[in-house]
């Protein structure tokens, strides 16, 4: 090999580079036997995980089945809210509701849910 001071040409340098590459290719490092053991352990552990049976889902109990029947926990929370509102209105009703109910129950004004003077009654008034 000649790498003298006169050598400045790129192609000549590249040619010399090949001797380094050749040395690098021949100087292949050896890995330890432990590496192979570690890799074999990985092969087995990945395969074990893949082959392990899926955990079986437990059957639902009575509560679970009832919940499913009424629409799950969202439905339960809606029902609970409605129940609480009902209790509050019962204990401390808003003014508009209490006026209406007192007039209906104790007042002098007759409130009918059914029209007492239907078409037949009107004719009887008229004679």
């Amino acid at each position: 090999m000649n790498w003298g001071t006169a050598m400045t040409d790129d192609s000549e340098k590249m040619m010399d580079l090949e001797t380094f590459f050749e040395a690098g290719r021949k100087d292949a490092p050896e890995f330890s036997a432990a590496l192979m053991s570690r890799i074999i352990d990985d092969i087995d552990s990945v395969a074990d995980q893949r082959e392990a049976p899926e955990p079986v889902a437990k059957g639902k109990g009575l509560l679970g089945r009832i919940l499913d029947g009424i629409g799950g926990w969202p439905a339960v929370s809606g029902m609970a809210t409605a129940g609480i509102v009902g209790i509050v209105v019962g204990i401390s009703p808003p003014e508009a509701i209490s006026e209406f109910t007192s007039a209906y129950v104790n007042g002098t004004t007759d409130l009918y849910l059914v029209d007492p003077y239907d078409s037949f009654g009107f004719e009887s008034f008229e004679g």
């Binding site: 090999m1 000649n2 003298g4 006169a6 340098k13 590249m14 380094f20």
Partner: peptide
Amino acid sequence: GKRALASVLAKRKNELGYSDD
């Protein structure tokens, strides 16, 4: 890469023991 390698190795030619002949 090869140009850079050649340049680096050329700087070390004395260390690496290359002669002019």
